[in-house]
Simulated assay, not measured.
Amino acid sequence: MTGYASGQGAHGRYGWTWDLRAVNGRGLDLRLRVPDWIEGLEPALRARLTKALGRGNVTVSLKVQAQDGGAAAQLDTDQLDRVLAAMTEIESRAMALGLSLAPANAADVLALRGVFEPGAQDEDTADLGKALAADFEAVLSSFQSMRRREGAALAEVLTGQLDRIAELTDAAATAAEARRPETEANFRAALQRVMDNTDTVEESRIAQELAVLAVKSDVTEEIDRLRSHVAAARDLIAGGSPAGRKLDFLAQEFNREANTLCSKAQSSALTSVGLELKSVIEQMREQVQNVE
């Protein structure tokens, strides 16, 4: 699920701003942009996010600045040299391929990680790291609250889609029952035509083959499985725990049963129900991608 939160804080001579946001993703992809001179901060944040989140492409940005006007900013010339060398190599390769790159300015270079950072490498940053980790909890809580609100709205959408799938499954059962007399009459007529035009095939053998055809046209199992999948999906949504991957699997199973139902339809009414089922299931599959 998508989500966003921001926050500000201060400790000692440092102030900071947080930016935490996420977009939908099949797995959990964490991207952290935090000052690397604060020892242990990035792994601590990564561990906390991994524990709290199950899915999504999550980005955390932290900007830390000294508030006292001291020597809090430092240019890392070694890192600058590495960055400039890499930029030169990139430009050379691009020119060799006939590509033209937009020129970078000094502000672009300074914004790159590690080039220009608060000059705290000679300080003990343990206390600052603890303060940041503690402050991050409030940001994460706000972020989770937003995701829960979105999750509640999404649960309503999915529940409505499941209600529609249940209705269509009942309609499929009704259509299947309505076609039964016609199907049986067709089988009997087919059997009679074969018996009238052959002297070599045993009647029992023909009956067996027609019985196989009858089984292949029976959609009872598909309807039963669709109902079972609806019940399982409702339980997952009501459970409250992360269920995105399980719902994704169920959506695939829904689609499998709907495809089989259409292939066995042999009536326009049942085919129509099957096609609408496939449409609703596809809509549900798209929404399930947003579920953690």
Score class of each variant (00 low, 15 high):
122 D>R: 13
4 Y>C: 08
193 R>I: 07
184 E>N: 06
15 G>D: 07
71 A>V: 13
237 I>Q: 00
136 F>T: 07
284 M>T: 14
160 G>Q: 04
290 N>C: 00
206 I>E: 14
44 A>L: 04
18 W>E: 05
270 L>I: 06
183 T>N: 06
276 E>I: 05
182 E>D: 12
184 E>P: 04
262 C>L: 07
32 L>P: 02
182 E>R: 14
159 T>N: 08
159 T>D: 11
144 Q>S: 15
285 R>P: 02
8 Q>E: 12
159 T>R: 04
59 T>P: 02
122 D>K: 13
15 G>V: 03
83 V>N: 06
272 S>L: 09
210 L>M: 13
148 R>P: 02
45 L>A: 00
126 A>M: 12
147 R>H: 03
280 V>E: 04
5 A>V: 01
268 S>W: 11
45 L>F: 02
209 E>G: 04
107 A>V: 14
2 T>W: 00
269 A>S: 08
12 G>Q: 07
87 M>I: 13
241 S>P: 02
234 R>Y: 06
125 T>W: 14
210 L>G: 03
131 A>T: 11
270 L>D: 08
96 A>G: 14
237 I>H: 00
164 R>E: 14
19 D>T: 11
19 D>Y: 04
30 L>A: 01
241 S>L: 03
99 L>I: 15
173 A>V: 13
172 A>K: 08
252 Q>C: 01
273 V>F: 02
280 V>W: 04
260 T>L: 10
209 E>K: 10
187 F>K: 10
117 E>G: 11
207 A>H: 15
200 T>D: 10
21 R>K: 10
87 M>A: 13
178 A>S: 15
187 F>M: 05
234 R>S: 04
113 R>G: 14
10 A>W: 06
